[in-house]
Amino acid sequence: MQDRSIIHLNITDFAVAVERVCDRSLVAVPLLIAPENAARGIVHDMSEEAYQDGVRKGMSLSRARRYCPAARILSPRLPVYRKAMTALVNEVVCYTPLVEQGQEDGHLFMDVTGTHRLHGPPPDIAWRLRKRVLSGLGLDPMWSLGSNKLVAKIASRVVRPSGEIIVGAGEEHAFLKPLPLSLLPGLRNTEQKILTDFNLVTIGDLARLSKQQLRLPFRKRGDYLYNASRGRDASPVLPGVDRRLRIIREHVFAEDTERAEELRTVCSIFVHEIGHCLRKRKIQARRVVVSLMYCDGRSASRQATDKQGTDNSFMLRSLALKALGSAWKRRIRVRSCSIIADQFLPRSPQPSLFCMHSVRELQQQKLLAAMDAVADRFGSAVLRSGSCW
């Protein structure tokens, strides 16, 4: 089987980089990208200077100002960042159609396996692409080359905020062995704490454990940790990933809260808005993600899935509350709550022959159809669903 060649292209502090291209006077000035006039603004992005002073994404603006008082604050311009991301992708697709982008955050994966006859060796592609992006867009990306997405992602974290690195096939173990566990993508805070209690501090330490040993404290997650610590990742580069294929709702509380009814109310309101949007687009979501930002700057995200997909707001609410229950484990006040619906499927116009709906589900469908009709005519804010906790 041919070894894969995956390039991870990353523009560090993407929003800041775009703002500095638009206004050269901002170069070398500490910057915070945050809604300046919001009563409880949260840092969207920050420059390397602010990062060195201790500012982090998701931190409250008031706290970030204390850490970096010399920083200049700019309100986020999401349409500009989205346009810059589109321009970056357009520069990349001429080398390979297998380009996977995430959010408008300046990073993407490229699968250049087998393209050497057209464009030369993968390192040459990365070098030319960096020069092309720098000259054409004014953005200076760092890049890493690995045999899979996980290794390439870790490699880019090693050279942050700028530079390049190549991890050849077969070199994964030697490369990962001395690195701290904090560089391992997808490692949860609770999992890292358990590993620290076991006196495991490097990825190499983790790789010494067998799959059976990891399954004891981590259950199914043990399989991921076993493979990740050895640099194994079979996930493909998925082209055509579009931010618009995610429906997101976010709420920042006027005051940090620890009240369960407030969090559940926010989730209920959001899922009914999302459900209305899904039904209008005639699509169904298979996953609901709930993300909580705590007042100390730490965050937690959990998901709940429906393999068949659904656009039923009541079922979406059940998924959201299940994810909320898994995410909300700390006795710390919550600053903001966001809900993401994704992994969409087109809704079939023909009812299933083998799916028998209960009387309750049929009543819910009729109710949602009536609510949609009212929302389309008078706006979604005129109706709200109620619940008894």
Rank of each mutant, 00 (worst) to 15 (best):
190 T>S: 14
190 T>I: 07
190 T>M: 05
190 T>C: 03
190 T>Q: 07
191 E>N: 05
192 Q>V: 01
192 Q>W: 05
192 Q>L: 01
192 Q>P: 05
193 K>P: 12
193 K>L: 09
194 I>Y: 14
194 I>V: 05
194 I>R: 04
194 I>A: 01
194 I>L: 04
195 L>D: 00
196 T>N: 08
196 T>E: 05
197 D>W: 15
197 D>I: 09
198 F>W: 15
198 F>Y: 13
198 F>L: 14
199 N>L: 03
199 N>T: 07
199 N>P: 11
199 N>E: 08
200 L>P: 15
201 V>A: 02
201 V>G: 04
201 V>D: 00
201 V>I: 09
202 T>V: 02
202 T>H: 07
203 I>Y: 02
204 G>C: 04
205 D>S: 08
205 D>F: 11
205 D>K: 10
206 L>D: 01
206 L>G: 04
207 A>K: 09
208 R>S: 12
210 S>R: 02
210 S>I: 08
211 K>W: 04
211 K>H: 11
211 K>P: 06
212 Q>K: 10
212 Q>D: 10
212 Q>E: 14
213 Q>N: 14
213 Q>W: 11
213 Q>F: 10
213 Q>G: 10
214 L>S: 08
214 L>R: 04
215 R>Q: 13
215 R>G: 13
216 L>S: 04
216 L>N: 05
217 P>W: 00
218 F>G: 03
219 R>M: 06
219 R>S: 08
219 R>K: 10
220 K>T: 05
220 K>R: 15
220 K>V: 13
220 K>D: 12
221 R>K: 11
221 R>I: 11
221 R>S: 10
221 R>N: 08
222 G>K: 03
222 G>S: 08
222 G>C: 06
222 G>A: 02
223 D>V: 10
